[in-house]
Structures are given as C-alpha cells and as structure tokens.
Design a protein around this nucleic acid. Structure first.
Lengths: 202, 202
DNA sequence: GGAGTTTATAGAACGTGTTCTAATTCGGGC
DNA sequence: GCCCGAATTAGAACACGTTCTATAAACTCC
C-alpha cells in the first residue's frame, strides 16, 4: 500500500507521471471536466460523467483526483496557467501599476465571464475546498498572486506588492463569485475592481 | 399551493412567523445547527441530525430552510447579529478609522477563531452558496459591511467608505477561509488584515 | 364543534459523491 | 515467454442531501 500511495501523490500533483499513457489519461480527465463544467457548471461535473467522457473507470478517476473539488481546482490551475501563458505573449499596456493591473484584471475577468458555467464550477470548487485540497488551492492562489505582481512591475515584487496582489486576488474572487451567483452584474464587478485597484495603487 | 408557498417564504426569511410554536421550532433548528457545527463543522451538520436534535421531522426542517446552505448561512446571519449587538454595547477605542476598524476586526476574528468548527461550517456554506441562497448571502454581506462602516465613522458612510468596507469584508472572509482550511495561521491572518486595513485607511 | 386547510410527522425513495470488491490488464525483471 | 506487483476496469455498495408519500395533528372560520 505504501508505494502505491506515494505514486498516487505524484499523480495528484500532476508531476512525474510515469508513463505517457498516464499523462494521456490525466489530460483526458481534465479535458472532460472542463467540457462538462462549460456546459452545465458545478452540478454537471458528475464524477461518473467525467469518468465516462474521459474513458476511464470511476476508480481510476479517483486515483488521479481524490475528490471532485481536487479535480475542479486542479482544472482551474490548468486554466489559469493557460491564461498566464497568453498574457505572457502580450505586452501589457499602461504607464503605471494601476493601469497595468486593471488591464490584466479586466482581461481575465472578461475571459472568465465568456464561460459562465465553467467559471461557476471552478470558483465554487475553489471556495468550497477543505483542508485536504490545501496544496491545490495554494497553487491557484499563487498563480493569481503572481499574475498581479507581474502586472505591477517587472522586478521581483516587494512584500507590499505581494500583499496588494493578494488583496486584489481576494476581491477579484469574491466579485467573481458574486457575479456567478447573480448577486452582482458584470458592470458591478468592473466598477468594484476599478475602485479597489484605485484605492490600493493610486 | 400558492398561499402555502408565500407562507414558506416568510419562514425562510425568518420574518412574521405566524405562531409562537413556529418561532420556537425555527429557533430550535438554528440552535441545533450551531451546536452540531460547533462540534464537528460543516460535515457534522447533517440534515437528519439537525432534525433529530431540533425535535422536528426532516420534512419540517426543509420547510423552514430549503437547503443545508440556507440553513447555515441563516445561522451565520444570526451569529453576526449577536456579535453586532455585543459590539454596539461596547465603545470602540481608537482615534482613527484605521484603529477602530482594526479593533473590530480583531475582536470578531478572535471570536470566530474561538470556535473553529462553527466558523468552518459557516464560512464554507457562505462561500459555497449558489444563486438560490442569494437573499441570505446578501443579508450576511450587508451585516459584514455595516459592521465595518460603523467602525469607520458615526455618520452615514460615504460611497468610498462602503467600498472600503466591502474590500475589507472580502479580505476578511478569504483569510478566515484560509485559516479554517489550515493554509494560514492566526498570526498570518492578523498580519494580513492589519496590512490590508493600513493600505486602505492610512 | 365540525369541515376544510395548512402544517407536521415518519419513513421510504432517489441522486450523486465516495468507497469497496473482484476480476483483468499492463509493464518490467527473469 | 512468464511472473509479479501495480494499475485499471466494471460494477456493487454506502452515505448524506433532497424529494416524495401517506397519515396525523393543528389551525381557521363558520
């Protein structure tokens, strides 16, 4: 049991997947998750449906991702990495940290709002995650934070910049959730983000 | 069906409970929820267990609160109201908004941290809530916001003050969740809150 | 105080996340 | 090629949120 356990951990973290077949399986699972989430949100990501669509047995799915929350948060990390890569290929316009952060924020937010169901699924999983998904959640939090610190300056971020990035991330997530649950409109979200960034960076 | 529907809505909102027996039942349910949550957190708040403990049939529980999330978020509102009342009976020390907000934040945070399981149950329910619990979530959000605006000044809050209060609320909640899921220590939380309030109010 | 309506009760039933079991297949060392 | 442990599979089983059904109790209005 012990060796199998450590192998499982590697699978979960998505690192060092022994065989190509396993990397393949993992990708199919994440793809299936994103497809189902895009179509019907959190509720549509049913473990049996994911397994079916990924052409994998239910037990295998659980071997790769120990819970629905792990699965969705890991998929969120994958999506954020994609967004970050795209951002890296762009030159972010703006003369001040304020302008650049707002640009990045607006862009990602609009990107997510283009796929409401997917956003709903991922944000809900993220905020619902319990301690067992701590590693995955930390990874996503770190991706968010670094997305904003990069927009603030090219240098290594100062502690204060990191703190600001974290606050922006918190506000961003909270507003995304409010939008997803229809307690705020896209305009509300844009306004509040602008206001927050202004308070923090101007 | 229609009159019963509207009566049910009243029960959900907790207003105008027709009979004393119904107010009684509702209170027993909330008390049972808080007791179970205090003991074992979100997972321990099982609908059958709540119903048993409140001495109410499962169907009745669902008539009063249409889901576990509604139940927990409503209980959170009750708890916040209690905290607010206690705060109202205190004179908040501090010469500046910065100092007073920090005092209030520290106090409520420590209060919640004294009951980790309850806090875990409530914050997870709050952040997991979907659109159907929008009203309950809005109520809690409003309670939080007004808790901070009151600390900032005695007057009616300006729009900017409201915005600041909202940001503080977002950061507060996010840090509470991080603490609850053991991704941040109590010290981390205190530091980050101090830093955030400083950035916003100093 | 009785008829009709609403509310409460006990408990079965259902759906989906998660776990478990038994059998099969895969991959690496001989 | 064969063996062995690990990985995968199909599917049963289980837990808990939620819904449904049938019956009883509690109100309301005459």
């Amino acid at each position: 049991m012990s060796p199998s356990k450590s192998r499982t951990d590697a699978l979960m973290a998505g690192e060092e997947l022994s065989s190509a077949a396993q990397r393949e399986r993992r990708k199919r699972i994440v793809d299936a998750t994103i497809a189902l989430a895009s179509k019907g949100g959190f509720d549509a990501v049913q473990m049996r449906a994911v397994a079916d669509r990924a052409d994998v047995a239910l037990g295998t799915l659980y071997r790769y991702f120990p819970s629905k929350v792990h699965l969705l948060v890991s998929s969120l990390a994958v999506e954020l990495e994609r967004a970050q890569e795209k951002m890296d290929r762009t030159t972010v316009p703006g003369d001040s940290a304020y302008e650049r952060v707002l640009f990045v924020l607006g862009r990602i937010t609009r990107g997510l709002q283009r796929n409401p169901h997917l956003t709903e699924a991922m944000t809900r999983a993220f905020t619902f995650a319990d301690a067992s998904a701590g590693a995955e959640v930390d990874r996503v939090a770190w991706l968010m934070e670094s997305m904003f610190t990069r927009a603030m300056s090219d240098e290594d971020p100062t502690d204060e910049q990191k703190a600001i990035a974290r606050v922006i991330g918190d506000v961003w997530l909270s507003n995304l959730v409010a939008w997803v649950t229809r307690r705020a409109t896209a305009t509300d979200v844009a306004n509040r983000l602008e206001l927050t960034v202004r308070l923090l960076l101007k």
